[in-house]
Simulated assay, not measured.
Amino acid sequence: MDLFSHSWTALRTAVAELPDKDFEQPSGCTGWLVRDLVCHLVIDAQDVLITLVTPADTEPTVNAVTYWNVEDRPPTGEDPLDALTVRLAAAYEEPRLLKFHLDDVGSAAGRAAELADPGARVGTRDVVLTVGDYLSAYVLEWTLHHLDLIAYLPDAAEPPVQGLAHSRATLEEIAGAAFPASFTDKDALLVGTGRRAPTEAEKTGLGELAAKLPFVLG
């Protein structure tokens, strides 16, 4: 629960500190500018709020690891929902409006998470899981999108080290294998999810795991 709040606060703070010009820079998400990614974070915050008030009375069907689906191919930015996000982001016109909406809805999502019972069961995406597992899964979401946010912004703040370590551990469980110790947590996440290609030296270190990459999470 604390790690969710820490990661989410760090991501929202990073957005709040961006100068307006950075909203027109590319993000680490294919086909999206930074402004598009921030709009997606607003939608993510809404999803958290909706899920936390959607109780389930059946047994959990997934946990923080199996919540994630591994897709067949990386996103191209041409998916209808991705395209809708771009149009929504453009409608804000001014970065300050996007910042305000993210702070408003994002703060509410953060408060809801702090108040939630980690053992309660909730439903989302046709699955059931505990609140604790749901929030744990979202640490990976926040961390990856924090990396996406700063992909072309070298002066922006990095994700919290605790979130990076947690997210790497989650990705390794999804992959069923550990990344080499020579990989930093950040590099394991970027290479493991296809956000950047491995170097030749990294491919050698990955061994058989290299053939399974990338793990495109959805």
Rank of each mutant, 00 (worst) to 15 (best):
E17G: 06
E17K: 12
E17W: 02
L18D: 08
L18W: 08
L18P: 10
P19Y: 03
P19I: 06
D20M: 06
D20Y: 02
K21H: 10
D22W: 01
D22L: 12
D22T: 15
D22H: 11
E24V: 02
E24G: 15
Q25Y: 09
Q25S: 14
Q25L: 15
P26H: 06
P26Q: 08
P26A: 03
S27M: 06
G28T: 07
C29R: 10
C29M: 14
G31W: 14
G31A: 07
W32Y: 03
W32G: 00
L33K: 09
L33V: 01
L33R: 12
V38D: 03
H40S: 08
L41N: 00
L41S: 01
V42T: 05
I43Y: 04
I43P: 01
A45H: 05
Q46G: 08
Q46N: 06
L49N: 12
L49S: 10
I50G: 11
I50Q: 13
I50E: 14
I50A: 14
T51C: 00
T51V: 05
T51F: 00
L52H: 03
L52G: 01
L52F: 01
V53S: 15
A56Q: 02
D57Q: 14
D57V: 10
T58A: 15
T58I: 08
E59F: 00
E59R: 07
E59N: 04
P60I: 05
P60K: 07
T61W: 00
T61S: 15
T61R: 07
V62I: 04
V62Q: 13
N63C: 06
N63H: 01
A64Q: 10
A64Y: 05
V65Q: 09
V65M: 03
T66D: 09
Y67Q: 04
N69H: 13
E71A: 15
E71W: 12
D72M: 06
R73L: 09
P74G: 10
P74T: 11
P74A: 14
P74K: 10
P75M: 06
P75L: 05
P75D: 08
T76E: 04
T76L: 09
T76G: 00
P80S: 04
L81P: 05
L81W: 13
D82N: 11
A83N: 08
A83Q: 14
L84V: 07
T85K: 08
T85P: 05
T85R: 12
V86F: 03
V86N: 00
R87Y: 05
R87E: 13
R87W: 07
L88M: 15
L88R: 14
L88D: 09
A89N: 08
A89R: 01
A89G: 02
A90C: 02
A90N: 07
A90M: 04
A91N: 13
Y92C: 02
E93N: 04
E93K: 12
E93S: 11
E94N: 12
P95M: 06
R96D: 14
L97H: 12
L97K: 10
L97F: 11
L98R: 09
L98V: 08
L98Q: 11
K99E: 05
K99N: 06
F100P: 00
F100G: 00
F100Q: 07
H101M: 14
L102M: 03
L102R: 02
D103F: 03
D104G: 01
V105S: 01
V105Y: 01
